[in-house]
Design a protein around this nucleic acid. Sequence first.
DNA 1: GGTCCTGCGTTACC
DNA 2: ACCGGTAACGCAGGACC
Length: 815
Amino acid sequence: MKLQFIPLDYEPFDYNGRNYIKVVGRNEKGKKICIIDSCDVYFWAILKEDAPEKRIKKIMEEINNIKIKKDSRESKVLKTELHDKNYLGKPVKAIKIFITNYKDAHDVADKIDFKEVEKRREYDLDFIAKYILERKLKPLVWHEIEGEILNNSTEFGGIDASMDIDCIKVEKIKELKEQAKFTPKILAYDIETQEIEIGKGNILMISLVGENFKKVLTWKGEPNENYVEKLKDEEAMLKKFVKYVKKYAPDVLTGYFSDGFDLPYLRARAEENQIKLNLGIDNSQPVFSRGNMLTGKIRGIVHIDLMRFIKIAYSQYLQSETLSLNEVSSELLGEKKLDFNPWNAIKSGKPDWNEFFKYNLQDSVLTYKMAEKIWPDLLEFTRIIQEPLFNISRDSMSAQVENYIIHNLEKFNEIAEKRPHYDEIGIRRNREKYVGAFVFQPTPGLYEDICFFDFSSMYASVIVSYNLSLSTKTEDKKDSYESDFNGKKVYFSKKIGFFPEMLKQIIEKRRHFKEEHKKSSDPILKARSNAFKLIANAAYGYQGFFGARYYCLEAAAATAYFARENIKKAIKEFEDEGFKIINSDTDSVAIELGNKTRKQALEVQKKINDNLPGIMELDLEGFFKRGIWVTKRTGEFGAKKKYALIDENDKLKIRGFETVRRDWCKLARDVQNKVLNLILKEGNEKRALEYVKEIIKKIKNREIELKDLIIKTQLKKPIEEYKSEGPHVAIAKKMREKEIPVDIGMLIEYYISEGESKKSLIRERAKLPDEKGKYDINYYLKNQILPAVDNILEVFKVNINEIMDGKKQMCLGDF
DNA sequence: GGTCCTGCGTTACC
DNA sequence: ACCGGTAACGCAGGACC
């Protein structure tokens, strides 16, 4: 039979000692099906250059006889072939060794011990990746499949009988030229529990939200809405949950922090109730893996913890200070969680159950809507990197870069480099640091008419333009780029390597799809352009990452080196043409127009661009009406990485200031923001000063609400490990005493109260938000408000210190 | 008992 | 353990007078 098929989930299995794979996806009619397939399993023995032909033949014969006996499985070499390949950019002769089971690849590789064999490679590749490469059945891409349906067949031990859906044994696979739109069936879920610790208390309710589908399952309260279904106990509720998930048959089951909470909790409660959480398409239970970080896998359904993907692909664009569902959904959707405190409700012993149900449902509604919104990004990441959706939604950016490389090596006839071993990682992690970016020392002051330029994807374009990678590093000084690594000269060949070449294509695609998106504003094109951008930007970090297959610290150092050279050159160009440099950080230059025109500035930009190497490009970020740079708190120098700009539409761009730092109280941040606004919008420092004085008065009169004085600091490690005990650590201790749950990663909230003696430490005066006490007027004036506005007003020669004390009126002459 | 300096710790920028 | 270096700055803690 012939059908169209889009793969969603890949699951390898063994049968008679051989490797097979079940791929669950949908056909063109939207029916969920499973295809069964297999592929060659092999790895490489790379030969030394001088290996004589006769010996190679002999070696191949010997390899052909390798057999491994392990547990109940017998594994052997099926055949060998001699190929011309590339390894790290150099042509090599390599023996392709076909084996019966990939799980034994490592053991077989260990048996290949000939002096003519230089290296053994690709025995550490993941089977799913290998399968996708070999059979070209790409995730979330439509294919035409030819095969035979298994109908209660005894093949594979009667695999089709154990599955809820049709199984097809595949013969031919062909990617379709016309790609129809694919909209996944998404089901979102969320649970409410008695305790925070996994499995400790009961699950009180479970909500489910899909398309035209909403449900709250519970065994508590007296429901007054018909979407709430009351079961007799927790066990019945869990069974019903499984039943509904199976009936809905989603492609994607998604929760928010569900890897770390919802799914393991469900699993634990199922165990406690002695029932099976058989959500899998073959009625298997979720499988949890990956050491520290839990990940929950459900066969045949792609379980996605939305929070993890948002953290990977979105967090750098988000303003949210935490990745909590409430904050992220209100930023992405403009919609919030319901105002209801589940822990207080539980503690009270008499929760308003109907409010609780609504609250529970809303969490799934938000999760569902966000999943829909983020789907284009998941889709495009998956299609570009060609790893299963399950991995795409969880992998770190360095893993995404590496997977992209692995799935694109074929074009270069390259054999993949191996993953570093444990001891190698240890060495890499202890390596010396290298010099990073150049940061300009700004002069404090208020500036008018500012032009802001920046290099587009600078580090990525440096890697491409100077050909910086592991395989292009060379001892040969001729025809190469010379860079510096902590005083040592390092060279990179000018003959383009596969890593820079791949990156070049990524950048080109990013530029292409960015243009395409401008024309059509299709969200898919935006997601595609964004995915290429993120991969490009992660390429630099990847080469310096200790876990990378293509780790090359010299390349990472050279990237920073050539970036410094180019930014400094650009700065010099602007200076030589008579522009004053205001700021520069890594890849950007801000200049003051002064008595020159925008046109003149753009001419310099063009001149710079004409002389830039390779694909490097200096873009105009924009024009700004005004901008402010301040001094460091200590010393007379201008502070780096702290400035505020206002564009022609009166939109502020604030960097580094307390306004954007979450470890300052809201009042200080708001006041600073207002002051920056007044100064930048109207150039009115007098109004700003008046405003600050009003606030000071309010603080002194205790007219400020406590919630605006709460300071939030993250607990980054276990309480015991702190060498120096800051206020947030002291509060964390206090919380633990009060049996309030404290976890690593939590934002600890506190305010500073008046102490008995003035000299006591700040941590001794720190109190929990609901602890009774008077806020310390002096602390909030001197440690929060003053530091937030002092440096800004100083630019106008206003000494706020004196105003605070009320000793002397301002220094502004005309005040 | 106060001042100064240093290191820890967090968060930002790019 | 899951990308890099550069930088500001509060607070604690100890040296020093």
